[in-house]
Design a protein around this nucleic acid. Structure first.
Ligand SMILES: [Zn+2]
Length: 621
DNA sequence: CGAGTTTGACCAGCGC
DNA sequence: GCGCTGGTCAAACTCG
C-alpha cells in the first residue's frame, strides 16, 4: 500500500467472483436436501466466503458521503463469521495487491469503480470519476516512506516510520468505516432504486388502466388507491380532499364482499383502527383466505380456537371444501387464483432483502431444489391477518441477483413506501387472474401487463404459467448474463423484453409518461401476436426467437440495476434531483427539498429501515 | 421480556 | 404406497 491510492475495482476481480462459483458445495456442508438449513448456504470455504463477501456490483457513486452514525447503526453487521456481509466492499484488504500494481492510478480522492456485468468484460461506457469526499488518499501517494533518505539517523527514521504507520493504520480504520458506510449506501440505493422502479411501474400501469377503463374493471378499486393524484382528483370531485398516509390495495373482490362480514374480524378492525385512514376508505378488513380455506387435519387441531378466525395467518391451501359463507363460487375461485398468482422480482442487490416498505417476519427457510442458495419465507406482519407472503432467494446463476416472489394481496392499508411493490404485485396478480378467468381456453392476454410494465425501458416481464402458480417475473437486473441465460434455458417462459430504448426512468412526475407509453405500445406491436397459454404451447419457439431478436438490441451497458440507476440518475434531471435530495437527506440527516418528486423521497426515506428483519443467515449471504 | 429468527418436524401434493 | 419436494409450524433460541 505504498502507492496508487486511487481505488480501482475493475471487473476482473468481480468477474472472477461471479463467474467462478465453487465447483460444488463441499460435502462437509452435509446439506440435507430437504430440511437442512444452513448459515453458509453456498457451502463456501472460508476464503471464498470472504472473497464473495466483497463482491461488489460496481457503480460510480455520485454521492458525497457525510457521516451519519444512526444509519450505520441501523445496519448492524452480521454477527456470525460464516455469514457473508451484505454487499461488503473491502477496498483495502481485498485489493491490496491490485492497488499496489496500479501505478498509474494516482488520482486523489477519487473512487473509480468500473462496472461489471457479470461476464467480466467491461462494457464501454464513460468512466465517471466521482469525488466521494472520503479522503481516500492521505499521504505519500507516489512513494512510500522510504523516500526519507537524507541522512537522518535510523532512529529518527524508525520513529517517523512508526508514526506514519500508526497514522496510516488510523486512516485505514477510518477508511474501513467509510467503506462500510459506502457499502450500506450502495445497497440501500440499489434497493431504493428497485422500489422506485416498481413504483414507476405501478404508476404507469395505473395510468394505462385509467386510459383503458374497460380493460380491467376488476382493478377499479386499485385505480384510485394506487396513485395519490387520481385519488385526490376523485376525492375533489366528491368535495372532500383528505390526505391519506396509508393506502388500501386490497383487491376489489376482497373488499366488495366484506360489508357483510364486519363482525367476525375484530382483530383486523383493531388493527385498522390503529392506522390513519380516510373515512371513505374504511372498509372492514377481511382476510380473503379466512373464509375460503379451512384448517385440515392437524393444523386444525393446532389452532381451532374460536379466535383463530381472526388470527389471520392461514395455510396456503386451495380450498377443497366449500366453506359456510356467502361467497360465490366465482369469488372463491377468484381469490384462490389471486392467492396462487405470484409476482417475482429479480433485482441485483447485495442486501438480504429488497426494502419494499412492508414489514416481514421470517417463518421458514428451506433448501430449494436446483439452487444452492436457501429460500427464505417471509410473511407480512403489518397487519395481523395479512395473507401476503414472500420468498426470497438468490439466483443460482448469479448470486448478486435477488429473487423476491410475492404472493397474495395485503388486506390492510399500506404506507406509501410499500405501495410500489404492493401495487405492482397486486396488479400483476389481478392481471394473471383476469387473464386466466376471462377466457375459457386459458389463454391470457399479457398486453395489459406488457403495457404497464414494459414502459420501464429495458425491463423484462416474464409471464410463466408452467409453474404450479402462475408467475409474473419482473426483471430489474438488466443483466446480459441473465438474458442469455434465459435464452438458453427457459423454454417454458415467455419474455416480453422491451429493448432498444434508453433508460428513461423519470420520476413519478415526469412529463414524458405518454412518450413512454407510446414507446411501449409501439414495442408491444412487435408482439402483437403474443399470447400466453397456461401450458405453454408451441408458440414458445416463435416467441423465443422474437425475444432473442429483441435481446440483441439490449443495451450492453445496462448490466445491472445499480448501473441502471446510475444511468437514470445521470440521464434524468428530475430523477437526479429527487434522488439527490433523498440521498442527501439520508446521508446528512437533513430534510429533503420539497419538490414534485415526493414519491422518490418517500421511498428513499421510508424504505430506509422498514424491514425489521435482521441481517442474518440470509439465503446467499 | 417481548419480538423476531432459527431449525427440526410435519404435512400435502405429485410423480412413479 | 413411497419418496421427493415445497411449504408451514412452532419450540427453542437470540437479541435489543
Ligand atoms: Zn400486508
Amino acid at each position: 500500500m505504498d502507492k496508487g491510492w486511487g481505488l480501482t475495482l475493475d471487473s476482473d476481480s468481480v468477474g472472477f467472483l461471479l463467474n467462478k462459483p465453487p465447483a460444488a458445495p463441499p460435502a462437509s456442508a452435509k446439506l440435507d436436501h430437504h430440511t437442512k438449513r444452513i448459515n453458509n448456504p453456498f457451502g463456501l470455504p472460508g476464503d471464498y466466503s470472504a472473497a464473495a463477501s466483497r463482491m461488489f456490483s460496481g457503480v460510480e457513486f455520485p454521492v458525497k458521503l457525510g457521516r451519519r452514525d444512526d444509519q450505520a447503526a441501523s445496519h448492524p453487521p452480521p454477527s456470525d463469521d460464516d455469514r457473508l456481509a451484505v454487499g461488503e466492499v473491502d477496498f483495502f484488504s481485498n485489493n491490496k495487491s491490485r492497488l499496489a500494481n496500479n501505478d498509474d492510478s494516482k488520482t486523489v480522492s477519487v473512487v473509480s469503480v468500473k462496472k461489471e456485468n457479470s461476464h467480466g468484460d467491461v462494457a464501454p461506457r464513460p468512466v465517471l470519476d466521482v469525488n466521494t469526499g472520503l479522503r481516500l488518499l492521505t499521504a505519500n501517494t507516489g512513494s512510500d516512506q522510504s523516500t526519507v533518505d537524507d541522512g537522518i539517523s535510523s532512529d529518527v527514521e524508525d520513529k517517523r516510520a512508526k508514526n506514519e504507520l500508526a497514522q496510516l493504520q488510523g486512516e485505514l480504520q477510518r477508511m474501513n468505516a467509510e467503506n462500510q458506510k459506502l457499502k450500506d449506501m450502495l445497497s440501500q440505493v440499489s434497493n431504493n432504486y428497485s422500489a422506485l422502479q416498481m413504483h414507476l411501474v405501478a404508476v404507469m400501469q395505473q395510468q394505462q388502466i385509467n386510459n383503458n377503463p374497460a380493460a380491467e374493471s376488476t382493478q377499479e378499486r386499485d385505480q384510485h388507491t394506487v396513485e395519490g393524484k387520481s385519488e385526490e382528483k376523485k376525492h375533489s370531485q366528491e368535495g372532500v380532499i383528505v390526505p391519506r398516509q396509508f393506502m388500501d390495495l386490497r383487491p376489489s373482490t376482497a373488499t366488495a364482499e366484506t360489508d357483510d362480514q364486519l363482525s367476525n374480524s375484530s382483530s383486523e378492525d383493531r388493527t385498522r383502527s390503529a392506522t390513519p385512514q380516510k373515512s371513505t376508505e374504511v372498509v372492514p378488513f377481511h382476510d380473503q383466505e379466512n373464509s375460503t380455506t379451512f384448517r385440515d387435519g392437524k393444523r386444525i387441531g393446532r389452532e381451532d380456537s374460536p379466535e383463530s378466525e381472526t388470527q389471520g395467518w392461514v395455510p396456503n391451501k386451495v380450498p377443497k371444501l366449500n366453506s359456510s359463507n356467502s361467497k360465490t363460487i366465482d369469488q372463491q375461485s377468484t381469490e384462490a387464483t389471486m392467492r396462487k398468482a405470484r409476482v417475482s422480482v429479480r433485482a441485483r442487490s447485495e442486501a438480504p432483502m429488497i426494502t419494499d416498505g412492508c414489514q416481514w417476519r421470517k417463518y421458514g427457510q428451506k433448501m430449494a431444489k436446483g439452487n444452492p442458495c436457501p429460500r427464505a419465507y417471509y410473511r407480512c406482519t403489518m397487519a395481523v391477518g395479512c395473507p401476503v407472503r414472500k420468498q426470497v432467494q438468490r439466483c443460482a446463476e448469479d448470486r448478486t441477483i435477488l429473487i423476491t416472489t410475492y404472493e397474495g394481496n395485503h388486506n390492510h392499508p399500506l404506507p406509501p413506501a410499500a405501495m410500489a411493490m404492493a401495487s405492482t404485485t397486486t396488479a400483476a396478480a389481478t392481471m394473471l387472474l383476469s387473464g386466466s378467468m376471462s377466457s375459457a381456453d386459458g389463454i391470457m392476454n399479457p398486453n395489459l401487463l406488457a403495457r404497464a410494465i414494459l414502459p420501464c425501458s429495458s425491463n423484462m416481464a416474464t409471464i410463466s404459467a408452467s409453474a404450479p402458480f402462475p408467475t409474473v417475473t419482473l426483471d430489474l437486473t438488466n443483466s446480459s448474463n441473465q438474458l442469455q441465460q434465459y435464452q438458453r434455458t427457459t423454454p417454458s417462459q415467455f419474455q416480453l423484453p422491451f429493448a432498444g430504448q434508453p433508460q428513461n426512468f423519470g420520476s413519478s412526475s415526469t412529463p414524458s409518461l405518454p412518450q413512454v407509453f407510446g414507446q411501449a405500445l409501439y414495442n408491444q406491436s412487435k408482439f402483437s401476436g403474443l399470447q400466453l397459454s397456461q401450458e405453454m404451447g408451441s408458440s414458445v419457439l416463435g416467441q423465443q426467437a422474437a425475444s432473442q431478436q429483441m435481446l440483441q438490441t439490449q443495451p450492453a451497458s445496462l448490466a445491472d440495476t445499480v448501473s441502471a440507476a446510475t444511468a437514470a440518475i445521470t440521464a434524468d434531471p428530475n430523477f437526479t434531483a429527487a434522488l439527490a435530495a433523498a440521498i442527501s437527506s439520508i446521508i446528512g440527516g437533513g430534510h429533503p427539498n420539497n419538490n414534485t418528486t415526493g414519491n422518490a423521497n418517500s421511498y428513499l426515506n421510508s424504505n430506509n429501515n422498514n424491514s425489521s428483519s435482521k441481517i442474518s443467515s440470509f439465503p446467499g449471504n
